[in-house]
């Protein structure tokens, strides 16, 4: 049930997808991997939209060089843990939701525990090795993974529904080299917003998702493009999860 304050807070969404839709968001637990540039946008919009439980995980502390894009964290947060800073900001945005912020490094060993009680995974990581851990966990638990990544003016996003769409490894079989990437806050804004929109639509069961579609944003030319993805019959992650060729 939505209380009177919630009905008022979410009134512009309720006129979009009804109280039933809002209740669905309230019942959804979202795992947000990372409280950096993408994680800031994702967590702020998910908190504001009323996802009932948000668990955000990051192992780092806030640095001055983060502040051009990581809008969860403010100047006074420099030196504090991103998890604690995230919790403060998100609870300030929406006290009606439950926010769990954990200062942890995501690993194969702890991912199952971190995902406990979560219905969806938001990819806000800055590297592919950890993304592959999220991918495997999503396939194993059969919960969706909303992928996003950025570099400078460029970004990409796709929605992974285990057993139905290409997984992250199907589309990106190998991790690109790790480099210090340039980052513009507004690029995080574009991609993170797309990821949240996808998550909202998934929960509501409305619209069309970025299923088997890799969306590409080029802020330099202000253009959006997409390419099709497909499940790879020889994907090792799908095979390990027992999901190979299930849709064929």
């Amino acid at each position: 049930m939505l209380n009177d304050l919630e009905k008022k807070r979410y009134s512009r969404q309720i006129c979009l997808f009804g109280e039933d839709g809002q209740r669905r968001l309230k019942k959804t637990g979202a795992f947000i991997a990372g409280a950096g540039g993408l994680g800031s946008i994702i967590s702020i919009y998910m908190a504001a939209a009323g996802f009932g439980m948000i668990r955000i995980v990051d192992c780092d502390s806030v640095e001055l060089s983060n502040l051009n894009r990581q809008v969860l964290h403010w100047s006074g947060d420099v030196g504090t843990s991103k998890a604690a800073s995230a919790k403060d900001t998100l609870e300030g945005i929406n006290p009606e939701i439950e926010v769990e912020a954990m200062e942890e490094t995501i690993s194969i060993e702890n991912i199952d525990q971190l995902l406990s009680g979560c219905d969806i995974i938001m990819d806000a990581m800055d590297n592919f090795p950890t993304r592959y851990i999220l991918n495997k966990a999503a396939l194993k638990k059969k919960i969706p993974l909303f992928h996003g990544a950025i570099c400078g003016y460029q970004g990409q996003a796709t929605t992974i529904i285990p057993g139905k769409t290409a997984c992250l490894r199907c589309t990106f079989p190998r991790a690109p080299p790790v480099t210090t990437f340039p980052a513009l806050g507004s690029t995080c804004g574009v991609i993170g917003s797309i990821q949240v929109t996808e998550a909202v639509k998934y929960v509501l069961g409305s619209g069309g998702l970025l299923e088997n579609r890799l969306m590409l944003w080029d802020g330099l030319s202000s253009s959006m493009d997409e390419v099709a993805c497909a499940r790879n019959p020889s994907c090792q992650d799908c095979r390990e999860a027992g999901l190979e060729r299930e849709d064929n």
Partner: peptide
């Protein structure tokens, strides 16, 4: 990643002059 005629394909896939390839640089930042 490389899309052949609009669809991402593995490196082993072949292409000819009749095909259009789109070569997309993978970004990894967050």
């Amino acid at each position: 990643v490389v899309a052949k005629n609009g669809k991402i394909v593995p490196e082993e896939e072949t292409a000819s002059s009749a095909d259009e390839l789109k070569i997309v640089r993978v970004v990894h930042g967050g």
